[in-house]
């Protein structure tokens, strides 16, 4: 048996369980929702074929700057901000937590724990902390003589930088930024992944760098960072996919309706309301598939450009 044949058989066996899952549990739901996107379907009766009219509705909404279009904008803002911050905070915090320092285990645990706090409890906590009138964060800001922010309540479409100089009273950050902050607090899962990746960097590489007299910063830049790029890439791709679908915290913080004035209405929330409150599953499916195409294109672009910067 040739090596190639052997590899083919091994490949198919090893991916077997997943392929079985794909065929049994994933394929049908995908096909069904694609079918619904061409139907009027209220979840309680039978789907009725209406051709492309759901997509025509979407096109009308987008061309008139309607509610779906606004939701797309909110989603893009949230996704970009939270992915960028998660890479920045994730890499730097994990690097810091990998130092030899007393109490390291405790600090790692504390930084990880927020990811475990149940979302309901986390949402209650953050709505207290970020209360615009009396919350701890704004109190801290005013103590430092910085302007208080309208966390969770601001409506500006893009909180900054557009409104930076103009908004009254220096209220720069808005509701979506509150959500981004909450997502960064719950970065624990990512932190664990980065910590494991740093643990995976062969020690010999550091030893070689030390012999060359590299400073910690240079070691980070030339050893740690390149070796982390596969995981950073994972972070970016999964961060994009997951932040686009973020739902529970958005739902809780926005009173389940994208408050205030639709400023936190993300596509995922809009989809939910359309499907399960308005009983308009056909239209919701069309939204989902449009979102699918957009995220797929973004992901494809990320994979294509990854060859230039991801260590292989």
């Amino acid at each position: 048996m040739s090596l190639k044949r052997q590899e083919l058989i091994a490949g198919l066996t090893m991916t077997g369980p997943w392929v079985l899952g794909l065929l049994t549990l994933t394929l049908y739901p995908f096909a069904a929702s694609l079918w619904w996107s061409f139907c009027e379907y209220d979840l309680l009766g039978q789907p009725r074929w209406v051709g492309g009219s759901n997509y025509a509705r979407l096109a009308r909404d987008i061309s008139t700057g309607g509610q779906f279009w606004q939701a797309l904008g909110n989603t893009a803002y949230y996704a970009v901000a939270s992915v960028l911050l998660s890479v920045l905070v994730g890499v730097s915090l994990a690097t810091l937590l990998s130092q030899t320092i007393r109490g390291r285990t405790l600090m790692r645990t504390l930084c990880f724990l927020p990811a475990v706090v149940p979302t309901v409890a986390a949402a209650v906590l953050w709505m207290w902390l970020l209360d615009p009138q009396a919350g701890l964060v704004n109190k801290a800001l005013t103590t430092l003589e910085l302007p208080a922010q309208n966390w969770f309540r601001g409506t500006s479409a893009a909180a900054w930088p557009t409104s930076w100089p103009t908004d009254a009273g220096g209220r720069v950050f808005g509701s979506k930024d509150g959500l981004v902050l909450m997502s960064v607090w719950g970065i624990g899962n990512l932190l664990v992944i980065y910590l494991a990746a740093i643990g995976d960097v062969p020690r010999a590489l550091y030893e070689a760098a030390e012999i060359d007299g590299a400073s910690p910063w240079r070691k980070f830049l030339h050893v740690t960072l390149p070796m982390l790029t596969p995981v950073i890439f994972f972070n970016v791709v999964m961060g994009l996919i997951q932040s686009v679908q973020a739902f529970t915290d958005v739902y809780l913080v926005s009173d389940g309706q994208g408050d205030p004035a639709g400023a936190t209405m993300t596509v995922s929330l809009y989809l939910f309301l359309t499907a399960f409150k308005d009983l308009d599953m056909g239209y919701a499916s069309a939204m989902a598939w449009l979102l699918f195409v957009i995220v797929a294109m973004a992901t494809w672009w990320l994979f294509r450009t990854s060859r230039k910067w991801v260590h292989q």
Binding site: F30, I241, F247
Partner: peptide, 24 residues
């Protein structure tokens, strides 16, 4: 296959939940 793997994560649960439930 890998592209398919990534693609399976891209559709929001809101629209795949019901058929998946019926399968289970």
């Amino acid at each position: 296959l890998f592209a398919v793997l990534i693609a399976t994560m891209l559709l929001p649960w809101q629209v795949t939940m019901a058929p998946r439930f019926l399968l289970i």
